[in-house]
Design a binder for these strands. Sequence first.
DNA 1: CAACTACTTTACGTTAACGTCAACGTCGTC
DNA 2: GACGACGTTGACGTTAACGTAAAGTAGTTG
Lengths: 147, 147
Amino acid sequence: MRISKAEATDSVNGSSLPRQRRTYSIGELARMFEVTPRTIRFYEQEGLLAPERRGQTRIYHEKDRVRLKLTLRGKRLGFSLAEIREVIEMYDAMPDGNARQLKRLLEILADKRSNMERQLEDIRLMQRELDDVEMRAREVLERLGQP
Amino acid sequence: MRISKAEATDSVNGSSLPRQRRTYSIGELARMFEVTPRTIRFYEQEGLLAPERRGQTRIYHEKDRVRLKLTLRGKRLGFSLAEIREVIEMYDAMPDGNARQLKRLLEILADKRSNMERQLEDIRLMQRELDDVEMRAREVLERLGQP
DNA sequence: CAACTACTTTACGTTAACGTCAACGTCGTC
DNA sequence: GACGACGTTGACGTTAACGTAAAGTAGTTG
């Protein structure tokens, strides 16, 4: 569990200004999200990214950046790369997806939802624990005469 | 990311009724929390649990059960066993803890807190994504004439 | 008492998610 | 034209968190 901070502001699809012709090198992207190039290449190998190529070199567009962002967010929520890929793949296949696939997608989404409900509850409970522990710790500190 | 459900209701320390003389075998505990005995032994080996012994056999009390519960909750929130152990250890050492240790504990707690703040935000964002994807999926299904 | 069942230790295997290192190509620039 | 920064592809190493299999013990049940 890293504690990154940047993650470049930008909404996911509500792009009002199509000043989008920006591209990124693997290094830029890596610094942006505080990961290593190795990580990004690994995600590609796992089917989470599919950047353009100029010769050997990878060229990343906005779409790729957004995917990477979603991937990292998913990771922080404890999803495996395989799970994330599954959703991404289905999302991409959506416009022409058959009914069976779409229903499967809805299932997965429902699953992730309940997962997050549980996490919300876990967080609430955990916060109480932390409150409790912190209170006790402060009490002891008090008794030690050290504010 | 498993989707368990049980996790035996019971508050963490607000025990109004001290009908506490219940103990558990490793198997009982395992079924309770839907983990394997192996997992529980592993947690002990990693210093997260320290059950009583009757001969060779492990005997778990309420205290151990609560610890296990907190451990699993921590895991679902993405904490490593090492992190969880650190907090548990400091918590146990609290009554006679020196000021330095206590301040360190408060630091760790603050860290976990900010971690969870971020997770809350991640969850909100992720829920929006899911809403979005689900909407699109339903639209396509609609167009296929299959409610 | 034999067969279960649940428990134990020891030890090696496995998986995910990268890290690390080698060996090489390609720019820009001093 | 040598240097440094950045990129590439293998390929092997590493860590966390268990799984799995072997081999033994302890209680109880028909």
